[in-house]
C-alpha cells in the first residue's frame, strides 16, 4: 500500500451505477462487498485507486468499483498493472484475477509480478473451474474433475496457488473464503503490506462447481477443517482441541490433539508470519487429514520493484540535464563548414 492521507468514504462511494452481472448466488458478490467494506475502513481514496483485471467472471470486478479501472486481456493483468504502477507509483493498485487467468494463461506474468515484488494487491478468485467459458476444468481443478472438456475426468494434477506464489518469491501470502467474515481483515493485511500482497480467495461457483470447497467451508465442517492462523498465536483449530506440531523426524507438520487447552504440552507451533519455511508447510498441507490454513500465512516485506525503479531513475539522472540537442550532437561529430570545392 501507499503512504496516503486517509480519506473519509462510505461503502456507497465505492459502488458504481453499473448493474452487477454475476450469477445469483455467486461468491463474487460477497468478495465485492468485502472489498467495498474494507476500502472505507483503510481510508483509501477512490481517485487514487486502480483495479486492473484480466478475463473471466472475476475480472468484471473493476466495472463495479467506483475507482479507476482497467479490464484488460486474458492473463495479462499483472503486466498491465506493472506499467500503471511504474508510470505512477502513488496509485493504489489492485489486481483481480481467477485461477485460469492467473495460473494458466497468465502464469508467467503472475510469477514475475511476485518475483519483482511490485507494490499491489492480488486477489485470486479460485473456484477451480472456468466459469465464463461454461465449466471446463481449470489449473486448480482436482484430478478427475468431469467437465465439458474432460468428460472422463481431468488427468493433470492441480496447481496450488499459494505454493506457486511462495515459490515465485512472494513476500505476502494469505488465504480467505468468499463469504467468511475474516475476508476484510485479510484484505487489510494485504493492503498494509508494502509489496505484492497475494490472496487466494476460495470462491464458490454456484453453477459449474457448486460446493467444491464445502468439505471445509460448509458450516458443519468449518470448525474441524479451517485453521485461521494469527501471528504469535498457536496453530489451533476445531475449537482449540487440535493443533499443528512439527514432525521432526519427517520434517513435516502433524495434527495433534490438544487436551484441556494445554497446547504447549501438545507441542503446537506458534505462528510466525515471517517464517518462510513454515509458510511453505502450511500451504502444502495435504487435503485429507489436515485442516486448510487460512489468514495471513506469510508476511515478510522486502524492497518493492517500483521503488527500486524510481530510485535507479533518480540516481542515474542525478546531476544530469536531459538536453536532447546535446545528446544528438554527442559522440564523433564533424563540422561541414561550406560546400567542398569541386575537383
Amino acid at each position: 500500500m501507499n503512504e496516503m492521507t486517509p480519506i473519509k468514504t462510505t461503502i456507497k462511494d465505492w459502488e458504481t451505477d453499473q448493474e452487477v452481472r454475476w450469477c445469483p448466488g455467486c461468491g463474487d458478490y460477497a468478495i465485492l462487498k468485502a472489498v467495498q467494506r474494507t476500502l472505507p475502513e483503510i481510508g483509501a481514496d477512490p481517485a487514487k485507486t486502480v483495479f486492473v483485471s484480466g478475463i473471466g467472471c472475476s475480472s468484471r470486478f473493476p466495472y463495479y468499483m467506483e475507482t479507476y479501472g482497467f479490464h484488460t486481456i486474458h492473463g495479462r493483468a499483472p503486466a498491465v498493472a506493472t506499467g500503471v504502477k511504474l508510470a505512477n507509483p502513488d496509485l493504489d493498485v489492485w489486481i483481480i484475477t481467477g485461477d485460469g487467468d492467473a495460473l494458466s494463461i497468465g502464469g508467467n506474468h503472475t510469477m514475475h509480478l511476485l518475483r519483482r515484488n511490485l507494490d499491489c494487491q492480488v486477489l485470486l478468485f479460485n473456484n477451480e473451474i472456468y466459469g465464463l467459458t461454461k465449466g471446463q476444468y481449470s489449473p486448480t481443478s482436482r484430478v478427475g474433475t468431469r467437465s465439458p472438456s474432460t468428460p472422463f475426468g481431468s488427468l493433470d494434477r492441480p496447481a496450488r496457488p499459494c505454493a506457486f506464489a511462495l515459490g515465485s518469491g512472494a513476500r505476502f501470502v494469505a488465504r480467505g473464503i468468499d463469504v467468511h467474515k475474516n475476508l476484510p481483515k485479510v484484505l487489510k493485511a494485504a493492503h498494509a503490506h508494502k509489496g505484492t500482497g497475494f490472496i487466494e480467495i476460495f470462491q464458490n461457483c454456484i453453477v459449474y462447481n457448486d460446493d467444491v470447497f464445502a468439505p471445509f467451508t460448509a458450516k458443519p465442517n468449518a470448525a474441524a477443517n479451517q485453521l485461521w492462523v494469527e501471528h504469535g498465536e498457536p496453530l489451533l483449530f476445531d475449537g482449540g482441541t487440535k493443533g499443528l506440531t512439527m514432525d521432526v523426524a519427517h520434517l513435516t507438520l502433524k495434527v495433534v490433539d490438544v487436551v484441556d487447552g494445554d497446547w504447549k504440552a501438545a507441542g503446537v507451533i506458534v505462528h510466525d508470519q515471517t517464517n518462510r519455511g513454515l509458510a511453505h508447510m502450511l500451504v502444502e498441507m495435504p487435503q485429507v487429514g489436515f485442516p486448510v490454513a487460512l489468514g495471513v500465512l506469510y508476511d515478510d516485506p522486502a524492497p518493492t520493484y517500483e521503488s527500486a525503479v524510481v530510485e535507479q531513475n533518480r540516481a542515474a539522472s542525478e546531476g544530469k540535464v536531459g538536453d536532447l540537442q546535446k545528446l544528438l550532437a554527442k559522440g564523433q561529430t564533424w563540422q561541414v563548414e561550406k560546400e567542398p570545392h569541386v575537383i
Binding site: 503486466a79 498491465v80 506499467g83 500503471v84 511504474l86 508510470a87 506474468h109
Partner: peptide
C-alpha cells in the same frame, strides 16, 4: 501490456 498500462497511467 506494461506499456499499455503506463499509457493508461499517463
Amino acid at each position: 501490456a506494461a506499456s499499455i498500462g503506463a499509457s493508461y497511467g499517463g
